[in-house]
Design a protein around this nucleic acid. Structure first.
Lengths: 123, 123
DNA sequence: TGGGAATATCCTGACGAACGTATATGCGTA
DNA sequence: TACGCATATACGTTCGTCAGGATATTCCCA
């Protein structure tokens, strides 16, 4: 998919990327916090790390998120090239599901993280 | 899924319904014309009728469209209960893909239909 | 009541996606 | 250089989904 342009197929690919609860929860977190590292998301969702990584790879492949390495951590943020579409869809959807138990729980667990990795704060 | 409420899972189910080129093309047509019967959409997309019916059933199951029988025809329109979410997502997405060859071709074939079924005009 | 058109459903096979586990890579530090 | 932490990828399995064709259902009209 070429950034900037959108055809039916790439729109479908992006919809498919959004059609998974784990990926939607990840995006909700990233959308709220700007940038997060994998260990934070792993902790927030309480799921195995490979699973989180794999889902992030899916989001990365359709260019909804981008990754940035900082020391031994990898930070994920929204792909700003896709922001026009993504921000719209995400805003509309998150507004409807922000009270969902899973979404709320994720936010709580992330907030309750005792020692958050260093690079995640020096943005 | 209960109409009106939205949790993560139902949001994902709706995203999944939007993650197919045929269903996106069908929604683009319905969104533009308000209500269409199956034979019109079959003609517009130039695909086998069972295929169209099956995809419409998927959209119906997640309550994105509703059906209404009129004589021997069945008319499909957007489910107005889902309109808040659907209209937003659809508007954002269609704006990006309205120039896609498939979308343009569908609209042309529909417009070029010599004899459109009667009930589709008496709305 | 019988025929034909419009629409929906059933069946089977094939492909892709998700999972869990194990393993590899990259970076900092001793 | 060796070790440990953070992250990514490979592998094998399972499961849901899509396609295509055949068939069933519903309705109108003669």
């Amino acid at each position: 998919m070429t950034i900037g342009t959108m055809d039916v197929d790439s729109a479908c690919a992006r919809m498919a990327a959004l059609s998974d609860p784990i990926r939607l929860r990840l995006l909700a977190l990233i959308h709220k916090h700007g940038e997060l590292c994998v260990c934070e998301m792993t902790h927030a969702l309480s799921l195995p790390q490979p699973k989180i990584s794999k889902h992030l790879a899916v989001l990365r492949n359709v260019e909804l998120v981008r990754m940035r390495r900082n020391a031994q951590w990898v930070l994920y943020g929204l792909e700003h090239e896709a922001a026009a579409w993504l921000d719209g869809v995400l805003a509309i959807t998150l507004r409807d599901i922000e009270t969902d138990a899973a979404i709320v729980g994720d936010a709580k667990r992330l907030a309750g993280m005792r020692v958050r990795p260093q690079p995640c704060r020096d943005k």
